[in-house]
Amino acid sequence: MLRQIAPVVLFFAPVVAAQESSAILSNPFNTPADRIEGARLFRSQCANCHAEDGRGTSAGPDLSSGAFKRASSDEGLFQIVAKGLPGTVMPGFSLSGREIWQVLAFIRSLSISRARETVTGDASRGAALFRTHGCGGCHDGLLGPALGESVRRKPLFELRRSITDPQVEVESRWWRLRAATHDGAALSGRRLNEDTHSVQYADPSGRLRTVSKADLTQYEIVRKSPMPPFDLTDGELDDLLAYLVSGAP
């Protein structure tokens, strides 16, 4: 068993040194064979929480987008896998240093295969379409998603589908509420949070409010997207996506 642990310790030595010289240590085990071994390890050690395709389950987040919340460098990811994330169920693993690098090579390859989806449209034509269709009016991060973030989180085919058919999958954080109080007032807006006794929401003017459920006579969650379906040609969609990828707001 000590044999198992020792390589991790050895690998920490250069990691620490790298931090001190503020250089970023990159993955030394990144051949196709390493990625195959990494995929095997991922399936046995990680997939029960992160899913076989790395897209995440209720027990662990999506690791396939290439964007991480807790680290950005390979070195940071290495630390996460070796030590776990304190305060979360993400455990530390007794994998050897080599094995951790191989798993990371596999995880990185997931987002590289996503990034291969090429954009063929014209970003400046896309910017014009974005303006004329009033997309920016909703996509401010409060009423609708900040699309720069969407581009980092989701593959292009999903974003494309969202534009042509916004109702396909509306994430619950974009659900809205419709409610009425005892004194007859009608409430509406984007639902931000909810618990047994209250609802937090942004009203149509963008003001943040809380209402107690005890004060409501009617309460309905609107799960449909407020975004209208846009009838765009394939070429126009390509242009819009090119604009989003080029750095939408």
């Binding site: 068993m1 997939a47 899913a51 076989e52 209720s58 007794s94 994998l95």
Partner: peptide, 11 residues
Amino acid sequence: GKWYVGGGVKA
């Protein structure tokens, strides 16, 4: 010393 679960659950 490694996970030995043979599957996963999506919920």
